[in-house]
Computed example of a mutant assay.
Amino acid sequence: MTPPASRGFVEVADRVFLARYPQWDVQVGLVLGRDGAVVVDTRASDVQGREVLDDVRRLGRDIEVRHVVNTHVHFDHTFGNIAFDTATVHAHETVAATLEARGERIKQLLRDDPAGAPEYGYTEADARGVVATPLRLPDRTFASSATIDLGDRVVTMTYAGRGHTEGDVAVGVADAGVLFLGDLIEESDHPSLGEDSWPLEWADTLTSHLTAAGEPGVVVPGHGRPVDVAFAERQRDEVAAVAAVLRERRLAGMALVDALHEPDARLPYPLEHLGTAVHRVWAQLATPSPAE
């Protein structure tokens, strides 16, 4: 179902705001401090990034966005960077290394098939906007962790391993009890185990983030409504179940074609949605299967 259009930023904790946008159902975060503001993820084009800035200004003309954080490399979280020309863009080092190639790939896909997809909330005009957007790479990258000092509060950025992509980071606002997890968590659908995901490592990565964060009151997914820790833990367990079943099949020597079609009641998501995850696990496990 297509989410409702954004009504701008809504405060979910002390000076932490969220805006949910219909195109690709993306959550964008805004953290205010004495020395400026941080935007978490920037949407899918320069036009959409400017819409975020307009929504920030509606909260207060004196708010200065000095920093942007990309939770991971995907276009719907990074292409809006170009709109934040006076801000420093922060991301994991793999985002800087792969954004251009990933960006060109999604642009080509949308050139080939620009028709809007209702289930993702975007139109053909939105697709053209993605294709036309110049990429802006991160200005500041890190391997394991980094911080942004806003004067009266600190925003943390932490890498704990691979999951949805090779470079997912958690963004924490400890004094407000808020944890942004990007697409390591999704509320409006099950997690996207795509062609650049790491299903066998994803659950451990989430466990590390949740353990380090303690008990945040608000967990922000990349798509959908904010959730609590219990929701994040349930989804972590679901991803772990997918990994366990697929690992078992691979190590037992099941043929790839059978793994793609053989049902298993332990799988929490429809098997037809897990085809890419099956291929990823078959590729990631080093031991070749004699059945192939």
Rank of each mutant, 00 (worst) to 15 (best):
L193P: 03
T147M: 03
P216V: 09
G129I: 11
R50M: 10
L137F: 10
H90K: 04
D46M: 12
G80L: 06
A286Q: 12
E201P: 02
G167K: 11
S6I: 04
F79P: 00
T42I: 05
L135W: 14
P118C: 09
M254F: 07
E93S: 14
L184Y: 01
A174G: 04
K107Q: 12
V218P: 01
E64G: 07
G116D: 10
L271R: 15
A240K: 13
R162M: 14
V89P: 10
A291G: 08
A286V: 11
D149F: 08
P221H: 00
R15W: 03
S192E: 05
G177H: 05
L181T: 05
T207L: 14
L150C: 09
L110W: 09
Q48H: 15
V95S: 03
D54S: 15
F17H: 14
D168S: 12
M1Q: 11
E272G: 08
T211Y: 06
G129L: 09
N81K: 07
S192Y: 10
R102I: 08
W24A: 05
W198S: 13
Y122I: 04
V73S: 12
A203R: 06
L246N: 03
T94P: 04
T165G: 08
G103E: 11
V16K: 02
V227S: 02
L135V: 15
W198I: 04
H92F: 10
E262C: 13
G60Q: 13
R102M: 10
A83Y: 06
F75Q: 06
A127Q: 05
G121M: 03
I63N: 05
R66M: 03
A232R: 00
A252Y: 00
A277E: 07
L206S: 09
A232K: 01
A259P: 11
P199N: 03
R128E: 14
A101D: 15
A44T: 11
A277C: 12
L150Y: 09
P288H: 12
R43Y: 00
E292F: 02
S188W: 04
Y269F: 14
T205C: 11
D35S: 14
L137M: 13
E238W: 02
